[in-house]
Computed example of a mutant assay.
Amino acid sequence: MAAMEDVLDVYHRPYDEKRPLVCLDEASKQLLGEVIQPIPAAPGQPGRFDYESVRNGTANLSMISEPLLGWRAVKVTERRTAVDFAEVVRWLVEEVHAEAEKVVLVMDNLNTHKLASLYEAFPPEQARRIAERLEIHHTPKHGSWLNMAEIELSVLARQCLDRRIESPEELRREVEAWEEDRNERGVEVEWQFTTADARIKLHRLYPTTQ
């Protein structure tokens, strides 16, 4: 409960450009190629695809969401490693928010989502500089629904990833187009669940006291 209330309190802070709120989550996408060339759509006839496909491995999607600004970015990598995670965090701290005092980062407890990952990727001096610029809040175990980046990943899956994508290059093109459109429209996540709501609706999860 402590981790949940901590994240909920963070979500209800007013926007502060010196301490921007960033939510981060990751998902994988199976890359599938065609066995038989699809038949394009024609007037009165939908396109036709063979049910068989070729597995071309998977790609990792790192969703970076700034819900208070209606901005998001998606990084596509071949793997989900500590070094890949560290590079995303470096990019946030050193490039996207180079002028911020702290980046307030909400994410889950995945084993790579640790400060130790920075030391696997960068020299100790740089790793420490990045770490000192972070204010980290982890969602509780089995509480990934508290991460607003997960909402963005769900929208991405429905609007962009619900079809066969053959290669990392094609995936990047599709994701970049989705990202650009959603950012241009400034789509925000309207988060309304509060700590007070949690104490009422999830009261059975709280420990009882005598």
Rank of each mutant, 00 (worst) to 15 (best):
M1E: 09
M4S: 14
L8G: 08
V10R: 14
V10M: 12
Y11A: 09
Y11E: 10
Y11I: 14
Y11C: 11
D16N: 15
E17Q: 11
K18Q: 14
P20M: 08
C23L: 08
C23Y: 01
D25M: 11
S28G: 15
S28E: 01
K29A: 08
L32S: 11
G33E: 03
P38Y: 12
P38R: 08
P40L: 15
G44Y: 10
G47R: 09
F49C: 09
E52L: 14
E52V: 07
S53N: 07
V54G: 05
N56C: 12
A59F: 03
L61R: 03
S62E: 01
P67Y: 10
P67K: 05
L68S: 13
G70R: 09
V74W: 00
K75C: 07
R79W: 03
R80F: 04
T81Y: 06
A82I: 04
E87S: 04
V88P: 02
L92M: 06
E95H: 08
V96F: 00
E99L: 05
K102S: 02
K102A: 02
V103K: 04
M107L: 15
T112V: 15
K114P: 01
L118H: 01
Y119F: 15
Y119M: 07
F122V: 08
E125I: 10
R128H: 11
R133P: 03
R133D: 09
H137F: 14
P140R: 01
G143I: 03
S144Y: 07
W145D: 14
L146C: 01
N147W: 05
A149Y: 01
E150T: 09
S154E: 12
S154T: 13
V155F: 10
L156W: 00
Q159G: 10
I165R: 05
I165L: 13
P168E: 03
E176L: 11
A177H: 07
D181R: 13
N183P: 02
R185P: 00
G186Y: 00
V187A: 08
V187T: 12
E188P: 00
V189M: 05
W191A: 11
F193A: 01
I200G: 03
K201R: 13
K201L: 14
Y206F: 13
T208R: 13
Q210R: 06
Q210V: 10
Q210Y: 03
